[in-house]
Write a protein that binds this DNA or RNA. Structure first.
Lengths: 211, 211, 211, 211
DNA sequence: GATTAATCGAGACGGTACGTCATGTCTTAGC
DNA sequence: GCTAAGACATGACGTACCGTCTCGATTAATC
């Protein structure tokens, strides 16, 4: 098990078994660290989230941080995930197009605030830290993608969408433009954009039959 | 004019006018710095591109680097742009859908190598350096976007695409998924993806008429 | 307590008391730094004693030097003092004039070598660093001055010297000319000078009674 | 001729001879440089007197400074000497002891202000720059010493002082303590000190006849 | 009046060292 | 066996001056 993943474990397992010897891990320290990371990220941006600052603000030693997380990005991600569990719930209108429009809208709105800043920072850090990128994919992205895929699958079942759809590619089409604006910042991420996006995607960019 | 942009000026102006006083800037040093940045990026990745390393490899003092660029990312961007001028030229088949498919394919292929790694690194750095992000938008992205927009406009003129198209949003739909895969890395960036992408986009995800 | 003074503390206190928390200071590093400073000073002169050079020669990081000393001059002073503790001991012939002549001679001889060069360098640095000047006064000069004062006091007690003597001024008369030659270098610092000095001082420059 | 000395030459020679070809040296620049050095020294201390700062304040290029002076200390000394020519004139009361007392008093008073700070700074710099030390000796110290020697010689001629006096040593006795306090700063440099000094020196530290 | 030659300003250059910061590792004592 | 405290080696940061250099412009004296 990699360090990034180990750190991610739920702190309290369901069937504890024979407690290991020695002083048990401090739950207080763990929480203080994650909270400090969150506050720093919110208050001063990713650059200010140093392990040093986290430790000081959490009233914890650096060694304690490093014992449980491999680097600052892992801490930030844990801190981030500890606050967003299923913050973007699943819409069910019965119509795939509408469900997707709503889903995209919620993500867009979420990306307008703290969540967007954090996700952008994590993706950025992931460029130089493969483990972090992997963790982000498995713990954040794949959850959202699974939701979108589920909506699409329901749409196909109901005959609203073509059976030829490549689900992976389709999900990229839905999410790609949103992440693109998030990361590149060339235009605002708002509800108008989200709606226009859904329209254009489902309209096939208004392409007439090529025949 | 900001420092990032100033550094970017073409070294030789068309109508030089009255040369400014003082020792002129060393063209040799400028080139050596950009080349060193490129080589380091290629050889050892973005993390290895420190100002210190650039200066040493270029046989230049750190002060000279800092005199002309505000930070390493700006150097990397200049170095990058000095090698890619119109590396992704404009296709003209006479059919918008085909032009776009080709355009997307070329970008996808370019992103599979050095260019992709560099663009990803620059976008990542841009998350914490607004000036760099702005420079990347104005000097790399907007050029590509303008090309895509031009293709779309031609398609509208020829009646191949709907007149209702919001060009900005449409360009986001085309580019977004590619940048998304580039930055998130959840699936490969290859010709198959590029083609599938074009198909799905123009097919409107296979949506039946919602009526 | 000022940094300069703190750094100067004896490493081993007599009654240690409750050891402070955290990793203890590395005695090995402390010694290596002082030795490196001494060697550099001896070998290449004060100008070569940069913090960078000290750190490298001592196999220590710059940060460790800066953690304990505010600047290179403070290191040099500590290094210097660690080698000279009571190197100019107290003479006791029973005659004030003779004791003083010997005391001056020993100082003059000491100033002819390493000690003289170092003291001169430290006084010079002290011109721009008040803390260093203060440290030099309290840790080097006042020790020597106290010795001279003691000799003079004994001489007064024995009736060899006038009771009207202003001890501070008298000590300045004894030491002043030696430091003057040390720092200005207009004439050699040797035993002949030292003896002639003592003679002239006690002879009152050969002044006839002004009456 | 050394650079330090060359720079020191009087700007206008008495018998100009065949003026050399080319643009003559700018008297305006020379003066502005010396004045800038003086002002900086007065206003912000020796550390602030960098060649860069002098050049900027004087509205002159660094190259012009370096063309005429080898380093900042030489500039400072020239600037200093250009303001103090025989500022401590010769007293003539007809009595050696009194002349000397007055002479010492004037020097002590002068050392209480700008002159003292400058001389101290120059002596300090002289520790690492032999040329500067030599220039200071020949252009400042030897002038004052000659004055003192002359007073002493007159005193000997008049029978007020012993014929056995070693003039060099005697001058060291007079000046040494003053420079000592100037450079070490352990006690104030004022009229009281100066007078007490003269008393103690002429009284031979109150020594009873050793016989 | 043109030529020659040294000076001047401006400011870029290769260097060196500065003092700071965060990294991730370690060493200790205490709980 | 965790924890806090904090020292440690490492390495890059961005800054400040150093003393040198390369320009075009200026200023006389000479041709």
């Amino acid at each position: 098990m990699r360090a990034v993943e180990r750190a991610v474990e739920q702190p309290a397992e369901n069937h504890p078994g024979p407690r290991p010897p020695g002083r048990p891990r401090s739950e207080r320290a763990r929480r203080a660290i994650l909270q400090a990371a969150n506050e720093l990220l919110e208050g001063e941006g990713f650059a200010a989230v140093t392990v040093e600052a986290i430790a000081e603000r959490a009233g914890v030693s650096k060694a304690t941080v490093y014992r449980w997380w491999p680097n600052r990005a892992a801490v930030v991600m844990d801190g981030f995930l500890s606050t967003v569990s299923s913050e973007v719930p699943f819409p069910h209108t019965g119509h795939a197009r509408e469900d997707i429009r709503l889903h995209m809208r919620r993500l867009t709105e979420a990306f307008g605030g703290r969540i967007g800043r954090t996700v952008a920072a994590l993706i950025a850090e992931g460029q130089t830290e493969p483990e972090l990128a992997e963790a982000l994919r498995s713990r954040w992205l794949s959850v959202r993608r699974a939701e979108a895929r589920e909506i699409l699958e329901l749409g196909i079942e109901r005959g609203e969408l073509s059976e030829d759809l490549d689900l992976e590619v389709a999900v990229d089409v839905l999410y790609g433009p949103i992440y693109y604006r998030l990361l590149v910042g060339h235009a605002p991420l708002d509800g108008d954009f989200s709606d226009a996006l859904a329209d254009h995607i489902f309209a096939g960019l208004g392409a007439r039959d090529p025949a």
